[in-house]
Amino acid sequence: MNTPILEVNQLQVSFKKEKEEITVVNGISFVVHAGETLGIVGESGCGKSITSLSIMRLISSPGRITSGQIVYNNRDLTQLSEEEMRIVRGNEISMIFQEPMTSLNPVFTIGRQIDEIILLHTCASKQEAKEQSIEMLKRVGISRAEQIYRSYPFELSGGMRQRVMIAIGMACQPKLLIADEPTTALDVTIQLQILDLMKKLQEKENTAIILITHDLGVVAEMCDRVLVMYAGEVVEEAVVDDLFHNPKHPYTIGLLQSMPSSVEKKSRLYTIKGQVPPAGSITKGCRFAERCDHVIDRCWGEEPAIVLVGNNHTCRCWLHA
């Protein structure tokens, strides 16, 4: 359980816009251990999706990884050639996406799209790939797997398609599965089924999961540890219980307060005032200062460093420095 399989060190990702480099992910570091689920939470535009795409090296131009390491299995993924990276993708690290409706190719059968990944990374024959695909479909809880194998994506509901995406993602028994908002586009009842399915498969295969979400309910349900991101940086990292019961960073506290509770009925939900600053707009001080309820003079001038505030609990805030 405690062997690290992925180590991200000081990752920095920039986008080039009219000769200007805008940094959208700024010096992120974290570790993922075998078999655990790491949640990455934050508002839209905080860089969580970009972080996950960088691990897969799927950032498309004009974006690029400008510095830092992504160490997987003693190899720095940022240094691999495209051809070496192809062998990692889908095989050792795979990814499922937010939009099950558009993430499958509309003109190919479900079967062909699962076969594709098996044929790419194993020596299976077409017939063996088909058998494995149907087996995968059964394992993600699809009854009538043979029939679905021959179906086209438009014949399936969103929940079914996300199951198919998970089948594709898990087909080659990856060590790490990156799930980028896997349930956001689904109905609430289906969300729970999909999360349960991921959990079940994870226990069986001992797969590590990076779960990217903005839904703290999903985090509580699924994750072992959580990384809170804000404006391209990590602001707090803790074990999930710690984070929910003892949040340190004002941003995390704000996020938790703005969660609707089923127990108490407040007349109005808490909101964090203001908006996420556009990438590259803050060059000095704490990035959250503008929206923070506890802002002090120091916040405007210097950016706080990440410090240890408890057992396995780190936070980037002057209040705790």
Binding site: L58, S94, F97, E116
Partner: peptide, 23 residues
């Protein structure tokens, strides 16, 4: 999006264009 899915599977860029995209 499905082009990104194909890349995430580890498929070659040329194969993606001649099969997934062209069709």
């Amino acid at each position: 999006d499905f082009v990104r899915t194909a890349k995430a599977k580890g498929q070659r860029e040329s194969v993606i264009i001649w099969t997934h995209v062209l069709r």
